[in-house]
Amino acid sequence: MSENTLTIDGKPVHFKDGDTIMEAAIRAGIYIPHLCHDPELKPQGNCKMCEVKVNGRNCSACTFPAAEGQKVLNNIKELNENRRIIVQMLFVEGNHLCPGCEKSGNCKLQAIAYSVGMMEYRFPLIYPKREMDTSHPDILLDRNRCIFCEMCVRAGREVDGKEVFAISGRGIGNHLIVNSPSGLLKDSLLEVTDKAANVCPVGAIIIKRHGFEVPIGQRIYDKKQIAEVSVATEKVLEEKVHG
């Protein structure tokens, strides 16, 4: 019988059979930065924020199976520098105008950017032209802010049991599409209580009439770093879903 132990940055972590490195880390209360992972959804590994070194090799923690004796490096300079590049890429790829965004202060992209010390964009901006969908009475879809984490796509399929969102296009031309005859959100099956409507880590899908409810200074990431917030909420969810 194996001991089911690996180490993350030198700290021993117990894992269960079938765990990914991310799942083991969440259960152990260790934060590995991520944007496309949610314990309730099937891991996909698209944002690459959770890239760790496993016995010297770069792997996505959210999809890589945990195994006995793995030496995982997570919070190291090289990886954090890579994470800074990824957030910078996501910022220049879309149109992220934080001052005018209802999600500001509660946005995971912004929070990770803060925590990796992103002060500048580094790259020239792309300024893509993207469509907004304001048709739904309760939910707003602003594609300018989409980061293609596919959480809404998966949440619809896996949790809500509905086919609402999908990715279309290819490469930098990827875009989120809505499953309805008109292509509009109002004609889709999406409801305000669905996980798909609430899972967006950024401000691409937001519930209407709740913007700016919480004053600046009291929003989720105003005082607490994402590591602390994430560990607290996801550990509970992880144990609920996978035991």
Partner: peptide
């Protein structure tokens, strides 16, 4: 490569276009 990137992961989707530019 920018034309053929599938767009799934951030480094390739955004990176190939930045490289192209």
């Amino acid at each position: 490569f920018a034309h053929e990137s599938c767009g799934f992961c951030t480094p390739c989707r955004v990176g190939t276009t930045l490289l192209k530019n």
